[in-house]
Design a binder for these strands. Structure first.
Length: 238
DNA sequence: CGGTTTTGACCAGCGC
DNA sequence: GCGCTGGTCAAAACCG
């Protein structure tokens, strides 16, 4: 289970069709009437991949860890969406280092890796849906586009400071950094395809569940620790 | 003792 | 209407 900074209470578990692993349902217990829920399910193709789906918006302030999670999600989503393949090698070192040195990149994914039991990359396509639409490239059909065109952009965990911060310029540089780090990872594509196949069905057969609230997913790969389980995080909104 | 987890039952939506 | 499936409820068990 990923520690995303929030408190969750499990309220159900079901066996999902086509997946030997059960799906667990959690509710946020940080506030009395917080409507946020999340579903956690392992990828059928690769059980080391954990798929987490968030739904709803928190109606209470988030702790720093959760805020970091939100920031990381947004950045990673932008990264994946940009599909940039620019080889900015100079950015690789700090990007990889951020996984190991949270204090250096406190507002990015570093803190996330510190709070999670294993390295994790979170994605939030709800935050950058429109941006993604502009950046979408034909050679990246593996990315589900179910969120494209939706008017809302407020993601589930963006109730914190990020919502009010002019984070765009700073996010842009982050996008480049993370994109370089991940797109050069040979394991990333395979893991992503496996995760998407598990959640969305066979890739290439659909543009995503149109009309669905599902956002997207993103597996985490850490070259330094290939035996670590991976994680996918999905955000959705209503 | 209070909060969390487990687990079977219940309900709603959907396709046939 | 019926069966299947996903999601939720709620009582009992569990745990610190």
């Amino acid at each position: 289970m990923i520690n995303d900074g929030c408190q969750w209470r499990k309220y159900g578990q079901k066996m999902a069709k086509g997946n030997p692993c059960p799906r667990a349902y959690y509710r946020c217990t940080m506030a009395i009437a917080c409507p946020v829920r999340k579903q956690v399910q392992r990828c059928a193709e690769d059980k080391t991949i954990l798929v987490t789906t968030y739904e709803g918006n928190h109606n209470h302030p988030l702790p720093p860890a959760a805020t970091v999670m939100a920031n990381t999600t947004s950045s990673a989503a932008a990264m994946l969406l940009s599909g940039s393949t620019t080889s900015e090698d100079s950015l690789m070192a700090p990007a990889a280092g951020s996984f190991l040195h949270p204090s250096t990149y406190a507002s990015t994914m570093a803190a996330l890796s510190a709070s999670a039991p294993f390295p994790t990359i979170t994605l939030d396509l709800t935050q950058t849906a429109n941006q993604l639409q502009l950046l979408q490239r034909p050679q990246h059909p593996v990315v589900p586009l179910s969120m494209y065109g939706l008017p809302q952009k407020l993601p589930g965990l963006m109730v914190g400071p990020q919502a009010s911060l002019p984070f765009r310029p700073q996010q842009q540089s982050m996008v480049e950094t993370v994109t370089a780090a991940i797109t050069t990872d040979p394991n990333f594509t395979a893991a992503l395809a496996a995760a998407i196949t598990s959640v969305m069905g066979a890739p290439g057969t659909t543009n995503g569940a149109s009309g669905s609230n599902a956002a997207s997913i993103g597996p985490a790969i850490v070259p330094e620790s290939p035996q670590c389980p991976k994680s996918c995080t999905t955000f959705s909104i209503n």
